[in-house]
Computed example of a mutant assay.
Amino acid sequence: MLVPIPDPRPAAAKPADMRFPVPISAKRPLFPNHLFRPRSSIGFSARLLSSPLIEKMLQRQTPAVKASVKNRIQAMSKFFDIIPKELRPKLKIVDVGAADLGPGTDPYNALLSYDDVVVFGFEPNSEKCQQRNDNSGENKKYFPKFVGDGSNRTFHIMQNPFTSSLYEPNDSILNCFQRMNLPLISSEEVETICLDDINELDAIDFLKIDVQGAELDVLRGANKLLSKTLIVHTEVEFIPMYKDQPLYSDVDIFLRERGFLLHRFIDIFSRQMKPMILNNDVFSKGSQIIYADGAIFVRDFSNIKNLSNEEILKTSCILHDVYKSLDFVGFLLNEFDTRNNSTFLHAYLNMCNSRNADSKG
């Protein structure tokens, strides 16, 4: 989620991106080139992605820069490298709120290098939706539709289009923070559709949702599909940025009732509360968490035996390539090997350990 933060400073004094205001120096690369030599792979890339130093260096860069660096790290290894081609399942991705934030910024970008990946995206802004279709291959299709619970709603259009929402901005909360106002420009009546009503969708491997407070509406409209969904990556708010919006706790309860568990959060956002301005920087983090770009939900792993072999491989691929959840992948592969008398866990551990050792050498 991006927040509009009007800035009176002249253009030359403004940072490249208002949420991550410190641009990269043109004189020095963000990370040393040796971090990306071919010998680096699974173990090393996982340590890079979880490194506090990397997180700190990326914290205040633009979304495109963050995506570029993370993609270079993630490209060091792919889960399907250890899986024979004949066993590699086809992945289906559904992207609700598919506005393009720049090359490589989709959270599922690491999966797009596979030939058999299909993406169904929904972006209600017709112009932005057409741009996505123009820049996409045949395996990615985007539709200018509002996804929700199937009801007629009022769409609130903000000064920053990325913050427009089916919910009205909650100024009483937003005004407590530095530069968090969401100026409302206009509103229009719209019709929402349910994912359950889309004939082309019979199952979802990776469901990404970014709809500015209306995440639970999307999930309610996918009640049937959720029983055939493996991973949900959804933005969530911890405080009501929009009036009467569902919060993280509501999303968590809804998904737990349908067989999901929270795996982790991605990019938790905060902002200083007024009147404090520490280090003369109104854009720096505060103590109050506001939202997370991603709350990652997985199928209840205590019932792993309910997953098919194909679902285990799909989940493993997503968790490794997108999130580098190495131990979770090992847990899944152990179940797969037990069922099939295979040795994929051994191959995976050997790859992680041997490459990690090599990266230290």
Results as ranks from 00 to 15, higher is better:
95 D>A: 01
96 V>F: 05
99 A>G: 12
99 A>V: 09
99 A>D: 10
101 L>W: 12
101 L>A: 12
101 L>S: 15
105 T>K: 10
105 T>S: 12
106 D>E: 14
106 D>R: 05
106 D>T: 02
107 P>E: 11
107 P>A: 14
107 P>Q: 09
108 Y>F: 13
108 Y>P: 12
108 Y>I: 05
109 N>R: 12
110 A>C: 11
111 L>H: 00
112 L>P: 00
112 L>H: 07
114 Y>E: 10
114 Y>M: 06
115 D>T: 09
115 D>M: 05
115 D>A: 15
116 D>Q: 13
117 V>G: 01
119 V>Y: 04
119 V>I: 11
119 V>L: 00
120 F>I: 00
122 F>T: 07
123 E>C: 01
123 E>D: 01
124 P>K: 08
125 N>Y: 05
126 S>M: 03
128 K>P: 00
129 C>D: 10
129 C>F: 10
130 Q>E: 14
130 Q>V: 02
130 Q>S: 15
131 Q>A: 15
131 Q>L: 15
132 R>V: 09
137 G>V: 11
138 E>I: 14
139 N>Q: 07
140 K>I: 05
141 K>M: 11
142 Y>W: 06
144 P>K: 00
145 K>T: 02
145 K>H: 09
146 F>N: 02
146 F>K: 07
148 G>D: 00
148 G>N: 03
148 G>H: 00
149 D>L: 10
150 G>P: 09
151 S>V: 04
151 S>F: 03
153 R>Q: 14
153 R>C: 08
154 T>I: 15
155 F>T: 02
155 F>N: 08
156 H>C: 10
157 I>Y: 11
157 I>F: 11
158 M>R: 08
159 Q>L: 08
160 N>Q: 13
161 P>E: 07
162 F>Y: 13
164 S>T: 07
164 S>F: 06
164 S>H: 01
165 S>R: 07
165 S>W: 01
166 L>N: 06
167 Y>P: 00
168 E>T: 12
169 P>Q: 10
169 P>A: 02
171 D>W: 06
171 D>Y: 06
174 L>Q: 04
175 N>I: 15
175 N>R: 14
175 N>P: 11
176 C>I: 14
176 C>S: 15
177 F>S: 02
177 F>H: 11
178 Q>R: 08
182 L>Q: 13
183 P>N: 14
183 P>R: 15
184 L>W: 14
185 I>D: 14
186 S>R: 11
186 S>G: 11
186 S>K: 13
186 S>F: 01
187 S>I: 09
190 V>M: 10
191 E>N: 10
193 I>W: 03
193 I>L: 14
195 L>V: 05
195 L>W: 00
197 D>K: 00
197 D>T: 06
197 D>I: 12
198 I>M: 10
199 N>S: 11
200 E>A: 06
200 E>C: 09
201 L>M: 04
203 A>L: 08
203 A>I: 07
205 D>A: 00
205 D>C: 05
207 L>W: 02
209 I>H: 03
211 V>H: 00
212 Q>K: 04
212 Q>C: 04
213 G>E: 04
215 E>M: 04
215 E>H: 07
216 L>A: 03
216 L>D: 04
217 D>G: 06
218 V>A: 11
218 V>C: 13
220 R>E: 09
